[in-house]
């Protein structure tokens, strides 16, 4: 068994990757950073702008990446302890979120939804303008958790977001999986693709270019990707368009994957589907509503209306003439 302290043997392939990423000349023979430096010409050394110590240090840092492959954080509970509203009055609620929670945020623009999200994102410790405190698994996060690497807990999906990369869907998902250093990305990529296609109204496959996807298809892909491939335990969704995505399937997927979902929406079906509804006003959570039997009964009715609208859309797409509501 190897101990953590024994130096790893020199890995020529990793070293070659390192050289490529740092735009340094390739060298097949060198079996250590020092040997590599020795093999460079004077002109090449000048070009690198480095010295042998810096080069060795950079390579050592590069190797540490292998040991922290975008690890998923084990989050059992997330608390947001009350702060104050825009006038400085105390907030009335402490919030606790657990994996699988779908919490809807309602309130007008500028009411303080982004502020709440920002507090979660930076793991506020009574040091942000709202005075809220965030606890992770019941405890305040340490400074290293707050201020090192890329610590954010929250994946975000909003209506303004687009894919800008020009790749087929399959390659794109593999690229994302690669950044997670997954040992066997293929099955996950398949799952994402299946889930996305099942959610989207119109079919697409691994060879479709991501930039060619329709609005509904790309939203479905973003949702499935965030559920299966993002390491972030919290997902913030800013409204899901009601055209082209099965919104309830999207929520179910996140619940199944144990994400905490914060859904900023005024869509009746979605807003009533959450396990709780936070009413945000004047910079604070003013009310927490748990849907009662009345509201729950409405969901079935809304699902039915939604299905009818979807059916109408499909028939219009097919070029049919419409006479009256579908049965």
């Amino acid at each position: 068994m190897s101990t953590a302290l024994s130096p790893a043997p020199f890995d020529a392939a990793r070293f070659a990757d390192f050289l490529r990423l740092h735009h340094l000349p390739a060298c097949m023979e060198a079996n250590s950073p020092d040997a590599y430096w020795a093999a460079l010409t004077w002109e090449q050394r000048e070009d690198t702008g480095l010295d042998p110590e810096t080069l060795a240090a950079r390579y050592a840092e590069f190797l540490t990446l292998d040991r922290q492959p975008g690890a998923e954080m084990a989050l059992h509970s997330l608390d947001v302890l009350r702060g104050r509203d825009k006038s400085g009055n105390p907030e009335r609620y402490d919030l606790r979120f657990a994996p699988g929670d779908v919490v809807c945020l309602v309130g007008p623009t500028g009411a303080g939804k982004s502020r709440l999200l920002a507090d979660i994102e930076c793991l506020a410790q009574r040091d942000t303008p709202t005075g809220r405190q965030v606890l992770i698994n019941g405890e305040p996060p340490g400074d290293s958790e707050r201020f090192s690497g890329e610590s954010g807990l929250v994946a975000q999906i909003s209506q303004n977001m687009n894919f800008v990369i020009d790749l087929p869907v399959g390659e794109f998902l593999h690229m994302h999986a690669e950044s997670r250093a997954l040992t066997d990305p293929a099955p996950v990529v398949d799952q994402v693709l299946h889930a996305a296609v099942a959610m989207a109204g119109e079919p697409f496959d691994a060879d479709t270019q991501v930039t060619q996807l329709s609005g509904g298809q790309s939203r479905a892909l973003m949702i499935a990707d965030a559920a299966f491939l993002s390491p972030k335990p919290v997902v913030l969704i800013d409204e899901i368009e009601n055209a082209g995505v099965d919104r309830r399937a999207a929520l179910d997927l996140f619940v199944r994957k144990g994400k905490i979902v914060l859904l900023s929406t005024h869509d009746p079906l979605l807003a009533l589907s959450g396990s709780r509804r936070l009413v945000i006003r004047h910079g604070a959570v003013q009310d927490v509503i748990t849907p009662g039997p009345d509201e729950q009964a409405m969901i079935a009715r809304l699902v039915e209306i939604d299905a009818r609208l979807a059916d109408l859309r499909a028939r219009l797409r097919n070029g049919e003439r419409i006479s009256g509501f579908p049965a």
């Binding site: 975008g70 975000q156 977001m161 687009n162 894919f163 965030a226 993002s230």
Partner: peptide, 11 residues
């Protein structure tokens, strides 16, 4: 980051 996908931000 407000206009690109979460996946692209992570990559």
């Amino acid at each position: 980051g407000d206009i690109v996908s979460q996946a692209e931000r992570e990559v």
